[in-house]
């Protein structure tokens, strides 16, 4: 499987995705637009609070090509963050007291400067999250020591595992991904990750393998813990239940399978003002591989930069200007406000 970009798919173009979201919204005219829902909840314009997370997307390169990927990542994507841009991120970070840096991709570990970046963030004394797809650990011998590297730097590992069985996982993430993920989880457990009392945090991410919403996070976590322990002897800390947003490949899936209208209606119907008030974009800043600043990783993929004209690139990072911005919203935002809400850290309400 190739990325949408490599196949020349129209949905590889962010502007086209926004057009589709807008046209489809018009076609389902009985549904309110997202900004109307926010206004009715007294949340428009949506304002940031003090940033708690700086999320760096260090590249679209990945060893997997997952069917739901909002980044359209894959082995054929070559866009990765340079060390110069990483340095700009570190310089900006040093100016602030943002406590947490969240490294994502693609597979962030495939960036040749990944380990240098982790070491430099460590020197600044910030908490580091790495969104590790698990299979990268076993993809090549040079990555086999990643669990030990993570341990040395006290990295919190967050890994996608859409299900605790092979069929559903492989349908979403590719043949053999489940078996490789289990191998990688065992390697992480072996150095202490997820083990009680180790202080090494291993959290898993569940997202539905289809056009439905995640159920209650606590129940899913209980089920994952029982099944992974019983079947594979694997332990982990928490499960984050994340809703798929209608962006990039998941948008493609929704349109191609005829599920778009029903899925959006479900998200709109499940709009929860409490989740909207707690959305992650309020305390997160997202940086793209080329240094652009965004309210979140989804806005980044839709080319919707922060509404802060004087500070739209990490080289022009201006915390005061960014604090005054209004967060950019669009129809895809319904994915973060449905039901118990959804964020990179799971449910929010």
């Amino acid at each position: 499987m190739k990325s949408l970009k490599a196949t020349g798919h129209q949905l590889a173009d962010a502007a086209f995705q926004l057009t589709v979201l807008s046209q489809e919204a018009a076609a389902t005219a009985h549904l309110p637009r997202f900004h109307q829902k926010l206004a009715a909840a007294g949340l428009l314009p949506l304002r940031p609070v003090a940033p708690a997370v700086l999320q760096l997307n260090v590249g679209k390169m990945c060893n997997q090509v997952c069917k739901h990927c909002h980044v359209d990542a894959g082995p054929d994507r070559k866009e990765i963050m340079t060390r110069e841009t990483m340095q700009l991120c570190l310089d900006a970070l040093a100016q602030t007291d943002i406590p947490t840096v969240d490294l994502t991709g693609g597979a962030p570990e495939m960036n040749p400067n990944f380990r240098w970046l982790v070491a430099e963030i460590s020197k600044l004394g910030r908490k580091i999250l790495v969104r590790c797809n698990l299979t990268i650990i076993v993809a090549n011998k040079k990555y086999h020591d990643l669990p030990e590297f993570f341990r040395q730097h006290g990295v919190e590992v967050i890994s996608s595992l859409p299900f605790y069985s092979a069929d559903k996982t492989d349908r979403q993430r590719g043949d053999g991904v489940f078996a490789d993920s289990i191998r990688a989880l065992r390697m992480l457990n072996a150095v202490g990750y997820g083990q009680p009392g180790s202080g090494l945090v291993l959290n898993l991410v569940y997202n539905p393998a289809g056009a439905f919403m995640p159920g209650p996070q606590a129940g899913l976590e209980r089920q994952f813990k029982q099944a992974l322990l019983k079947d594979f002897g694997i332990v982990f800390n928490s499960l984050y239940a994340i809703t798929n947003l209608p962006v990039s490949r998941f948008l493609d899936y929704l349109l191609a399978s005829g599920n778009y209208a029903g899925y959006m209606e479900k998200l709109v119907t499940a709009f929860n003002p409490a989740a909207a008030a707690a959305v992650m974009c309020r305390d997160t800043l997202s940086v793209s591989w080329d240094g652009g600043l965004y309210d979140c990783d989804f806005n980044q993929m839709l080319d919707l930069p922060v509404a802060s004209p004087s500070s739209q690139h990490i080289r022009d990072f201006d915390a005061a200007a960014l604090a005054r911005r209004a967060i950019v919203v669009n129809e895809h935002c319904y994915g973060c406000t449905a039901g118990a809400g959804s964020s990179c850290g799971g449910t929010v309400a």
């Binding site: 299900f163 069985s165 559903k168 569940y206 919403m213 899913l220 089920q223």
Partner: peptide
């Protein structure tokens, strides 16, 4: 069918 999928039931 939707609800069981959402609750994480297997096929």
């Amino acid at each position: 069918t939707t609800d069981t999928l959402e609750k994480g039931c297997t096929e």
